[in-house]
Design a protein around this nucleic acid. Structure first.
Length: 499
RNA sequence: UCCGGCGUAGCGCAGUGGUAGCGCAGGUGACUGUUAAUCACUUGGUCGUAGGUUCGAAUCCUACCGCCGGAGCCA
């Protein structure tokens, strides 16, 4: 009798026959041997089928890739096997064949892969990303749970538009118009007044027409909110929180990060304290000569590199024209195509850079920090940077103005390094009833839908605050991904709803 | 919404006015230790859609559709 086993446990099960249940992920045939790669979600195992086990041999030789298979055999250590363990197969049965499986073990375009996202998820790269995502979420919840935070989930259907109704998704709700949540924060503040320290974790929705590598219309956010907390407390918490997420990924998902070819060195440098600068200091930094000189220098260097690679492309093309052998032409064509794509992208980037440099130099106090400015700022540091005290005009009504400088609010953004940008936004909240009312009036807001929120300032108001961390941006950063679309099983992007 | 690029076999691509091509996948066969195995043979096309120019259009022009990249937008 064989027992059910998972591939991740095989190394410790030498000698006894086991049964694997999974899918055929790859195959190589060699005359009287079949090497079948079987995956079961926990790992991939090379299953060796010999011709003398005739039935198993025939089945394993014929089954299309991604067929569901049940394999019996004896695990044994063998250094020729990928992963060091393989299964010596006694029986190989196909539960369901996968005729004409669309995704091959080769390169595909992004449109094709996105249209087949439900199958693309099976690939080694995608499962690695999803495992890192799982670990980040799990570590985030453990972090707050261990500190005594209570998970209090907040509604997805919400009545009003706090600000910027253009970025909310309206939903018909029994004849009324309501909106999908952009944040749980206002409700979370009520929970914090009940429980002291709380957090919520759930999906949030933004209807911004942003087609960029860092925007989703539906993304997951984890938000803590703390009674009797001020801005410095929030900064300390955010710093410890991010360190914890990075540590967990490095400790529990090293193998997956390597599969993703993530350079681990920048992650291993992540440790407290994070640099903290105010918005005003950031503005001065952006305008300053040091940054300008550095950016100009980088631009010159990258231009030179681009020119050198353009030269390399021309050389390759000449080589291609002179080449007679078909297979060498093929190889060169692939190289040329890859280089051409790369050059095109870098050219577009370089074309934008002078404008970025100009906009940094001309940055005016009061402007919001856009994506370009964020990128420039994060390049100045080798770990996340906390930017505080933004002008109140570009921030939300509930943020508390600084007592020593009412032009700015007690908020913070945490910007991830390596160009990944904002992963946390948070603030100390306005806790004074009259001040909050005045601010809402100044914004032209109707207070009626917010009477419940104002009640929190009428009955036992305390200094409090919190922040939100975007899960997908964090996953993209820790995994080193170019685009946020791979960080969630079924990304919702502007103009893409299938599958 | 704007700017740029792309759309040719299931997939990835070449083909710039004159008979529709290559690689991979699929199929058939060879090979006892493969690591994206290799080798031989082989099936497979309304060239995104509609109109136009031309003796002749995948190729040139116009419009539309789709996707990608960037910008704007973005508690």
């Amino acid at each position: 009798m064989s027992t059910r086993a998972f591939i991740q446990d095989l190394a410790g099960l030498g000698g006894q026959e086991v049964e694997l249940r999974g899918w055929l992920a790859g195959r190589r045939t060699g005359g009287k041997l079949v090497f079948a790669l079987v995956r079961d979600g926990t790992g991939v195992c090379q299953c060796v089928v010999e011709a003398k086990t005739a039935e198993a041999f025939a089945a394993s030789e014929k089954a299309p890739l991604e067929s569901s298979v049940i394999v019996r055999g004896v695990p044994r250590l063998d250094e020729r096997a990928p992963g060091g363990v393989e299964l010596s197969v006694a029986a190989f049965s196909v539960l369901q064949g996968a005729e004409d499986y669309p995704i091959a073990r080769k390169e595909h375009g992004i449109d094709f892969l996105m249209n087949h996202r439900h199958l693309w998820l099976r690939s080694a790269r995608q499962t690695a990303i999803l495992k890192v995502r799982h670990t980040i979420i799990s570590a985030a919840r453990r972090f707050f749970d261990e500190r005594g935070f209570i998970l209090t989930d907040t509604p997805i259907f919400q009545p009003g538009a706090a600000e910027g109704a253009g970025s909310l998704f309206p939903v018909e709700y029994f004849g009324d118009r309501v909106y999908l949540a952009q944040t749980g924060q206002l409700y979370l503040e009520a929970c914090a007044m009940a429980l002291g320290r709380v957090y919520c974790f759930g999906p949030t929705f933004r209807a911004e027409k942003s087609k960029t590598r860092r925007h989703l219309t539906e993304f997951w956010m984890i938000e803590p909110e703390i009674a009797y907390a001020e801005l410095p407390d929030l900064m300390e918490l955010a710093e410890a929180f991010i360190c914890r997420l990075v540590e967990a990924a490095l400790a529990e998902r090293r193998e997956e990060l390597k599969r993703l070819e993530r350079d681990l060195a920048p992650l291993e440098r992540i440790a407290p304290p994070f640099p903290r600068i105010t918005y005003t200091e950031a503005a001065e930094l952006l305008r300053g000569d040091a940054v300008h000189a550095r950016l100009t220098e980088e631009l010159e260097r990258d231009r030179a590199r681009l020119a050198a690679d353009a030269e390399r492309l021309a050389a390759l093309e000449r080589e291609r024209a002179a080449e007679k052998k078909a297979w060498k032409q093929e190889k060169l064509d692939r190289e040329i195509a890859a280089l051409r794509d790369d050059l095109r992208e870098r050219e577009a980037d370089l074309a934008n850079r002078p404008a970025h440099i100009e906009s940094a130099r001309n940055f005016k106090w009061g402007d919001d920090l856009g994506g370009d400015e964020e990128t420039i700022l994060t390049r100045q540091f080798d770990r996340p940077v906390i930017v505080t005290r933004y002008p109140r005009e570009c921030k939300a009504f509930y943020m508390k103005p600084a007592p020593d400088d009412p032009r700015v609010v007690l908020n913070m953004d945490v910007l991830a390094p390596e160009g990944y940008g904002e992963i946390i936004g948070g603030s100390q909240r306005e806790d004074d009833l009259d001040a909050l009312r005045a601010r809402m009036a100044g914004e032209g807001m109707d207070p009626a839908p917010y009477e419940w929120y104002l009640d929190l300032r009428r009955y036992g108001s305390v200094p409090h605050g919190g922040f939100g961390l975007g899960i997908e941006r964090t996953v993209a950063w820790i995994c080193g991904l170019r685009h946020i679309r791979e960080t969630i099983p079924f990304p919702r992007l502007m103009g893409r709803m299938y599958p």
